[in-house]
Computed example of a mutant assay.
Amino acid sequence: MVQCCLCTGRVKAIARSLGTEKDAVAETLFDLHTSLGAPTSLAEIGMKEKDLDQAANLSILITILVLLINNQFDNYLSMLLKASALKKESRFSQKIWRSF
């Protein structure tokens, strides 16, 4: 799995605050989320299946904007190139490549 260099430090900080290992952050956050009764699916917050493509596109654009603002866009492109080299292209990364 290719990790963004921006995320590595943040995951460690979150792990420390949750009192867990960095490899268990996602599971720990999910458990906390569900224990609070929060929704666990897009359908539970009212998103329709027909809206998923638009939501994915907006997510990509927001990610790129945040990275540009934080001067981290080069790191993002590097991460995508590594993912492509590992032949782990998903529908998400294919859409990104088509947008350039």
Rank of each mutant, 00 (worst) to 15 (best):
G46C: 12
L42N: 08
D74M: 04
D51Q: 12
I96E: 03
D74S: 09
P39M: 10
C5N: 12
R98Q: 01
L61K: 09
R10W: 12
S78E: 12
E89T: 12
A55E: 05
L61A: 07
T20C: 02
T20I: 02
E21A: 10
I14M: 06
K50H: 13
L61T: 04
T28A: 02
K12I: 03
N70R: 14
S90V: 08
F92E: 10
M47W: 13
V11F: 06
A13F: 05
A15R: 01
C7N: 12
L42R: 14
K87T: 14
L77M: 15
Y76P: 04
V66N: 05
F92L: 09
L42H: 14
T63D: 05
I96N: 03
T40N: 10
R91P: 05
K87I: 07
A43Y: 12
W97F: 07
K95G: 01
L61E: 06
T63L: 00
V66W: 02
N57Q: 07
M1V: 04
D23N: 07
S17E: 09
R91G: 07
F73T: 00
T20E: 00
S99F: 06
L86N: 14
L68T: 09
A83Q: 10
F73L: 11
S35L: 01
T8S: 08
C5D: 13
S17G: 03
M47L: 14
L65N: 08
L29D: 00
L67Y: 02
S93L: 05
L65A: 15
K87R: 14
I14Y: 05
N71Y: 06
T20G: 04
A43Q: 09
N75I: 02
G46I: 05
S99I: 07
L81H: 15
S41Y: 07
L80C: 06
S93V: 01
F73K: 03
L86W: 07
D31T: 05
L58E: 07
E27T: 04
A15Y: 04
K95M: 09
A24L: 02
D31W: 08
Q54N: 12
S78A: 13
L36F: 09
A15V: 08
L29R: 06
I96F: 04
E49D: 13
M79D: 10
S41H: 10
P39Q: 10
R16E: 11
Q72H: 13
S90G: 14
A43I: 03
A83E: 09
A43D: 12
F73H: 00
S17T: 02
I64D: 00
N70Q: 15
S84N: 14
S93G: 06
A26V: 08
E89A: 13
L81S: 15
F92N: 09
H33N: 13
L36H: 00
L65E: 12
E27P: 02
G37C: 07
T8W: 11
I45R: 10
F100G: 05
T63A: 03
